[in-house]
Design a binder for these strands. Structure first.
Lengths: 222, 222
DNA sequence: TAGATTGTTAATCGATTAACAATC
DNA sequence: TAGATTGTTAATCGATTAACAATC
């Protein structure tokens, strides 16, 4: 009840770990909503995600007060709050750079449709591919990348080119004013001022699984 | 020089955070290798990855001694060691369950080829898709999943079905003896005894980028 | 009211980093 | 030898969790 600080503009620091959990909270709340539940306690939300109740309350407390003692959290209200926190209340326009396997898959990815993420452009450097229709979009020549991006108000660029090309692509994206890059390549992209880069190297997950299967090195439980 | 404990079989606990960094170390070492370098210091490896030198040394120390004072680490030797640690010294056979956008992309993913990861089977429940050839593999009927998996020695199952189907698929995979699951769906899969699940929800990265772009919530630097 | 559950404080746990003797 | 860089210890920093007064 005391802490409405964040909403009113104070600046607590949100831990990275908290940020990683919020999308999971939101997804889980959608699932609880369809069952017709109105409220949920930090206890049961935590149980459903393998987290402690205090973890949930602490995470939410960074953003202000959402719950009611005795009743827990109103699911609808909390969904609303999390969508605002995560910035999901507006549309985001995406451009995909690289129309290979991954780029194509992302162009047709249904998880984007369910939110207001819209793939608006897709680029490639391959003559055979340029001009092709992928999910309703014509693949454009990557040499026109900067020019085309300046005309369109693209929010996020997805990089799905071969690793070697990724560094140059990222440079061009940043020059064209892109401030958020979703990097599906193995490249360790340079850090740019004010540019947020999210890495999603598909191989790394397999490396972790391999490590686990090879099983000689002890690991923390859980 | 004192700590050869891990190699000789003692059991230190490897932090999760360390495990997440090792694949990045390995990839970066491959890159240094092609430049012809023989040795690398924890300082320069760290700089190239945006990490402190002590972080690198600490991480490596969990696995025994690799470096030489004054000369740093022998790149070839360290690559070798990391490949062993990560379990990359043998082949891993993969099965893909769900031949939608993502499943197809993964079936053709070149990052797997560069290691000894081999996609051996691919399943779907769609009549239109069963029997199709994807990257040289015939899509099999998902109703034969358990039966087919029991014949083949599959190490890792990739789940790329719609979220709703994921829970049942995971149950079947575990029943069929699978011990490593790479989950590309949004589903919060049940935890199974002795089964390692790696989640790769593609939407979550976009959520984080959205949060960043919406930019009202302060975050830790870096 | 009695009891459940919140938000927050303080304690604990774990991971990063500074410092430094050992050593190549 | 002198100096660079290691592996490790101890200090710091940050994140999780137990405990509990506040409160619905």
């Amino acid at each position: 009840m005391t802490n409405d600080g964040n909403i009113s503009g104070k600046s607590p620091v949100i831990p990275q770990a908290t940020m990683e959990r919020l999308p999971r909270y939101l997804m889980q709340l959608y699932r609880f909503r369809v069952t017709g539940d109105i409220n949920i306690s930090s206890q049961s939300l935590g149980d459903s995600l393998g987290l402690k109740d205090t973890q949930i309350r602490k995470d939410l407390s960074y953003f202000g007060v959402f719950g009611k003692a005795r009743y827990g959290y109103n699911i609808e209200f909390l969904i609303d709050a999390l969508e605002k926190i995560l910035g999901l209340t507006r549309r985001y326009d995406l451009a995909i750079v690289g129309a290979g396997n991954i780029g194509r898959a992302l162009a047709n990815y249904r998880g984007f449709e369910s939110r207001d993420f819209r793939v608006k452009m897709i680029f490639d450097n391959n003559r055979q591919v340029i001009g092709q229709d992928i999910g309703g979009l014509i693949v454009q020549d990557i040499s026109l990348l900067e020019e085309k991006l300046k005309d369109a108000a693209i929010d996020v660029a997805i990089v799905s080119v071969p690793e070697k090309a990724a560094y140059e692509v990222a440079d061009k994206l940043v020059k064209a004013g892109i401030r958020a890059i979703y990097n599906f390549t193995a490249a360790e992209l340079h850090q740019y001022e004010d540019v947020f880069i999210e890495n999603a190297n598909i191989s790394f997950g397999i490396y972790k699984l391999a490590h686990h299967l090879s099983g000689h090195w002890p690991r923390k439980n859980k």
